[in-house]
Structure formats: structure tokens, C-alpha cells
């Protein structure tokens, strides 16, 4: 290999004293000292999460407390890393939500696999799964990070609903639906 010898220039007096550099550095320090801080004292302080943030996928209930997921399994189908597993179940006849027919018996998301792509939220025909603002997921074992239905509803909580489509279906059936 060819080598090139670079000539090293001698330092001048100002450089040798380091003083201009120290002064320059202190200028920046003092300028920032009086500005408001840009960092957060995490975890005591929490950041503001924007509305469209894609955090942990969660299951949500409607304001009447009905679980919105109907176990159609489309999110399971679309999930690129195959992190979701749904066991569809039936809703008991005597339940007030019996007209919805189905709900998940179990719903699991492997958070070690989830890539936060949001396809599950996008594909959901029932607006039941949302990537909300939780961004910190940790646990002491792998098993702990397979979120089950209970955990997912705990994280998801209740979101407003602009449709109430199943209630509309029930009302329609009660009002006009006595064809037979």
C-alpha cells in the first residue's frame, strides 16, 4: 500500500495556551445554563406523546363497557411478525351483548415480537385494537411479555365510539326486525 506522509504543522501560541477553546466552550455552557431544559427527568417526568404515536397495541372497550373485539382474526392474519394469537369464543345467550355473537376467549400478543407497525389497528373492522401511548414494555421473563387479554384491556381502557354499530343492529332488530 502506498503511504503518504502528512506534514504536521506546529501549533501557534494561542493554540498552545488552550484559552480560546476554553472560553468558547464556556460561552456555550453559560448560554444554555439560562435556557429552559430540553431533556426530561425520565422516569419521574413523562414525555408528551402525540396522538398518532404507535405505542403498545391494546384492546379497548366502548363507553358502555362492551369489549369491541369480535375475534375476527384479521389482525392475527395481517400481523407481519405473527405476534398475535386469538382463540375465538362465543358470547353466552343470556349476555346483554349476545347479539354481537363473538368475542375472543383469549387474545395474546407477544410483545417481544411486535414491531409496532400498526397494521393490526389499520385492519381492525371493529376499531377494537389501538396502538396507544404506552411505549415502555419490560418484564423479568419472556412469559411476562406475552400480553394476555386481561392485560391488553387494562392497557387499552375505554375509547369514545362514534358508531355503536352493534347497538344500532340490536335496535333495528327490536324495532323492525320481527319478520318471523
Amino acid at each position: 500500500m502506498a503511504t503518504k506522509v502528512v506534514e504536521r504543522k506546529p501549533l501557534n501560541l494561542a493554540e498552545r495556551s488552550y484559552l480560546p477553546q476554553i472560553v468558547g466552550g464556556l460561552k456555550i455552557t453559560f448560554r444554555n445554563m439560562w435556557k429552559p431544559p430540553v431533556t426530561l427527568e425520565y422516569p419521574e417526568q413523562r414525555p408528551n406523546i402525540p396522538d398518532r404515536y404507535r405505542g403498545v397495541p391494546t384492546l379497548v372497550k366502548d363507553p358502555n363497557g362492551r369489549e369491541k373485539c369480535v375475534a375476527c382474526q384479521l389482525c392475527e392474519f395481517v400481523c407481519p411478525p405473527r405476534a398475535i394469537r386469538i382463540d375465538p369464543g362465543e358470547i353466552p345467550e343470556d349476555s346483554e351483548h349476545a347479539h354481537v355473537e363473538k368475542a375472543p376467549r383469549e387474545f395474546k400478543i407477544d410483545m417481544l415480537r411486535c414491531i409496532y407497525c400498526g397494521l393490526c389497528e389499520e385492519v381492525c373492522p371493529e376499531e377494537a385494537i389501538f396502538l396507544q401511548d404506552t411505549f415502555s414494555v419490560n418484564g423479568l421473563s419472556r412469559a411476562e411479555l406475552v400480553f394476555n387479554k386481561k392485560k391488553l384491556y387494562q392497557l387499552g381502557g375505554t375509547l369514545p365510539d362514534s358508531h355503536y354499530k352493534w347497538d344500532k343492529k340490536r335496535d333495528a332488530a327490536e324495532k323492525g326486525g320481527d319478520e318471523h
Binding site: R85, D110, L112, A143
Partner: peptide, 14 residues
């Protein structure tokens, strides 16, 4: 169109 090899046993083995 099988979606089925879910990773749900990955807490046992990745």
C-alpha cells in the same frame, strides 16, 4: 394464506 405459526410459544424458546 396460513397465518398460523404464531410466536406465542416464544417465551419458551425464541
Amino acid at each position: 394464506r396460513f397465518s398460523g405459526r404464531t410466536s406465542i410459544l416464544s417465551h419458551l424458546s425464541v
